[in-house]
Computed example of a mutant assay.
Amino acid sequence: MADLFESFIKNDRQRDLIRMAERLAIRVKQRVPETEENASFSLENLNDLKSEGYVTLPLPLEYGGQQINLYELLLLQERLAVGDGSVALSIGWHMGIMMELSEQKMWTPEKFTMLAREVGENKKVVNRAASEPATGSPTRGGIPETKAVWDGTYYILNGRKTFTTMASVLDYYLVTAYVEDKQSVGSFLIEKGHPGISIEHTWDTVGMRGTGSDDLVLKNVKLNQDSLVEINTKSAKPTPKGWLLHIPACYLGIAIAARNDAIEFAKSYQPNSLNTTISEVPHIKQKIGEMDLKLLQARYLMYAVAEKWDNNVADRDNLGPELAAVKTVATNIANEVVDLSMRIVGGRGLSKKLQFEQYYRDVRAGLHNPPMDDMVIQMLGNRALTE
């Protein structure tokens, strides 16, 4: 079977990164039945990611990382997702956050150094807790109902965060809240086990069950001023976030897994009505070709935009529409590829004995990750109308 990653590898460093992702993909794939049943993120998977040093890769060299660029992040995430999309999407949030903090210098040097050392030396993992029941997706602009009230000594936080990926195994949470004394939204860095924090196992979704995206509950959480690491300024213009391409990379990885499994099935399955395997049947060949054509379209777009991001730092503020377009194109094509793979396999694709039904459930979740299709189309339309 053709190696779909070979044509995107440019040097020995990237080949080594791909090999790391391959090793991890093999291990995490073995735990899929467990995470599917429990709807939780496997601690064993996290330990593997930490032991390989995967979680440190976005860090600058001085903190023990490899300072990977966006192109390399996508190679890693896409290949890891071939093993388990839930693992790739989950750790992708940590990877992207650390990449953004390293490159954008959003925190004071002291605060960033503290977290960078925790990640580099102790392999700590962080994710943002931003979504809430009332606000929906943070990208829609809702104000958090989680409140941070200054009592003269501490900030007191109360609220509930939904869809907190890897909630039960994270080492740090970046919690968004409305900071009353600042009259603005801010983010607090909170260590696991801090008094007042608890996890409620609410993750009952049909897809991406292994992300363990449970609720984070905050009840009278006392935090000092140093815990407030970010504060949004109303005058600040939103800037594109290249690292969010970890989302389309993940779903394309799932599609590749479905494509690979469908080809293996086609090459091995021979009904007694044929004197050959179904791989020789014209309409099966047609569907395989369609899968590869769609993957070529989405992947070349994704990696081209990533390369543009890496090579044109001064022009990044203008890449928002391209980044958004990659997500929409990739996630929709990923759904189409999984659908084609199941048409190749037929009714057996719905069996729990095969993984196609999981690919089908998992890949659907990509449509609901930010940015949403309607926002992307409107963004492109507005840009065209203002040219």
Rank of each mutant, 00 (worst) to 15 (best):
L4D: 12
S7Y: 04
D12M: 02
I18M: 10
A21I: 04
E22T: 07
R23K: 09
Q30N: 11
T35F: 11
E36R: 07
N47F: 06
N47W: 04
T56I: 10
L57K: 09
L59R: 08
L70N: 02
Y71A: 00
L76W: 04
R79K: 15
G83M: 07
D84H: 11
S86F: 06
I91Y: 12
M99Q: 15
M106L: 15
W107A: 03
K111E: 13
M114A: 13
N122K: 14
K123W: 03
K124H: 10
E132R: 05
R140C: 00
G142S: 07
D151V: 08
G159L: 03
L174P: 01
F188V: 05
S198E: 14
W203M: 06
T205W: 12
V206R: 15
G207T: 06
T211H: 10
V221P: 01
N232S: 12
S235K: 05
A236R: 12
T239P: 00
P248I: 03
A249Y: 01
I256G: 00
R259E: 12
D261C: 01
P271H: 08
S273K: 08
N275P: 00
I278H: 10
D292K: 10
L301V: 13
V305M: 09
A306T: 12
N311D: 08
D315N: 14
D317H: 05
V329L: 14
G347K: 11
G349N: 09
L350N: 08
S351G: 02
Q358D: 12
Y360C: 04
Y360Q: 13
Y360V: 02
G366V: 09
M375K: 09
